[in-house]
Amino acid sequence: MEQLPFIAELIISILLVAGGFFSLVGAFGLVRLPDFYARLHGPTKATTLGVGSVVVASMAYFTLHTGELAITELLVTVFLFMTAPVSANFLAKAAMHRKVSCMEGTRGEPWDQ
């Protein structure tokens, strides 16, 4: 690997580790949270943000390394940000249809139509 300026290396490394951290937290939430609807929150955000920062790190690295703008990675992030709410919505609808139970103390009612 060629040498990049120190500050660029630092920023890219921080972005990478932050991405890994958010993915890990999302997965941990998937294991820890008590009911399905709460677990739905983990992957749609934490994981998408995790991949997002890894992608930004990759973009920065290749742009600085080759001197050409590397933007194809951005397409992956944009696509994930567009699809994550849709799949979460479909999963929530399926869960309400199957009458997946909520945890105790949940206010309000899921509906199914």
């Binding site: 739905l40 749609t44 955000k45 998408t48 709410p85 849709v86 979460a88 509906w111 139509q113």
Partner: peptide
């Protein structure tokens, strides 16, 4: 989609008339 993307809330369903959005 915006509600789903911002953490802490997921939009679960829209009723048939398009007047209510169910948010978890």
């Amino acid at each position: 989609s915006t509600v789903s993307l911002t953490p802490g809330t997921v939009s679960a369903d829209v009723n048939d008339e398009g007047t209510l959005l169910l948010i978890h």
